[in-house]
Design a protein around this nucleic acid. Structure first.
Lengths: 224, 224
DNA sequence: TCCTGTGAATTCGTTCACAGCC
DNA sequence: GGCTGTGAACGAATTCACAGGA
């Protein structure tokens, strides 16, 4: 399911190049997955391809967009206008894809009142009113770790039902709220893990390694 | 394995609060996972807990850090100093966690030469030299989608072995290179999907839904 | 008694392989 | 002949459940 957006991106790209049809094989290659997986994923949509031919690009774009709820636009808010929040607010790709920024929120009195990307930053205390007024369902959280859970609780109470969390903490939210997280340092640490593992492997190949825990552990982890 | 960084964060937090011991149950709850999973994950490290007691927090921090390769620091570079690249360059959490920014790279002549976070932005043409000179192994890619693959190829040729990609494209890299991606619009689209699904479910409960494809499809997807 | 470590059971996602249709 | 749709086989990850040590 998290693959649908990837397919969609490939499809849009192909449509722009004027291609009208695409095979599961081609879509798979461009998306970095297996072709059987593509066919199975698409079969869940009930979208039909044509045997012997492939999938109609335009039609599939329509189906996937609809499945993803992209045929309507979603009002969102960005909470926390530090470095990252500012970058997100200025990011063009937001609106293009049907995610309209309806409000910007911050707790810092110096930030409140400033114009960012054509929108005035409101105080976090306004969140209840703004969420209701603009029917905001999605919040992007770019606040410091220490305040993140409190802000999340407040947003949920205000009526938010989806949160995209950039703060480096594990948030707890009620069942009816969707939560996704983007965590820079976790990503880097994962890369670090594989870097280190390659270093250990290299030293083993060269025979310079001493028997070590890392060595014993080495084979237990998946390939990448 | 991608859970180790999460455990580590929880452990550090507990250590700071002066706790010396933690049970798999408590660690699991704070990490948002099942306790058996925690025990199994930790057993791969060869770290031993104490039956009847739990795990020693300090010792576990040491073990996990070592496994993740965080006992050394990694030289990294940020490529692309648009909104996002700037925010990343100014992000403090980088250096704190052992990821030293050794170079900033951009293709825009107006950006090259500027100081960002105390480092002068170099031209992308310098990447071969800088990667070698600073032994940079990890690159953070914050360039526009259109140029991302070319830049990635170049970085790989220069000797980079890990890439954290923020550009909204599927990158292809050789097997010996690790690749992670962070894609804002994909995350939003996934949230959109669940938002929409909730809307459909609500209309079904209210009896206002017409029989529809979305309705038929509804049950096929995982819970969240 | 409490909590870890781990085989066994289960669930989930992926891939294979081929029947069926264009 | 080419390509989709899908049952069946497979493999990986998760969870159960309990033996055994502190």
């Amino acid at each position: 399911m998290s693959r649908l957006p990837v397919y969609l991106r490939v499809l849009v790209d192909r449509a722009e190049r004027g291609e009208h049809t695409i095979s599961s094989e081609a879509l798979a290659a461009a998306s970095g997955v297996n072709s059987a997986k593509v066919r199975k994923d698409l079969s869940y949509l009930g979208s039909y391809g044509t045997r012997g031919v492939g999938y109609d690009v335009e039609y599939l774009i329509h189906q996937v967009s609809r499945e993803l709820g992209l045929t309507q636009d979603w009002a969102t808010c960005i909470v926390g206008l530090g470095n990252l929040g500012l970058a997100l607010a200025n990011y063009q790709g937001f609106a293009e894809r049907g995610f309209r920024i309806a409000a910007l929120l911050d707790a810092d009195p110096d930030t409140v009142g400033q114009q960012v990307a054509g929108i005035e930053v409101a105080h976090i205390d306004e969140c209840e009113r703004l969420v209701k007024e603009h029917e905001i369902s999605i919040a992007v959280l770019a606040v410091p770790a220490s305040g993140a859970q409190a802000v999340a609780d407040r947003l949920v109470a205000a009526g938010i039902t989806s949160i995209l969390n950039f703060a480096p903490v594990v948030l707890a939210v009620p069942d009816h709220v969707s939560l996704r997280k983007v965590d820079l340092s976790i990503e880097l640490q994962i890369l670090s893990f594989y870097e280190q593992r390659r270093a250990v492997e290299a030293s083993v190949r060269e025979g310079t390694a001493r028997a070590s825990l890392a060595e014993v552990t080495r084979r237990k982890w998946p390939k990448r």
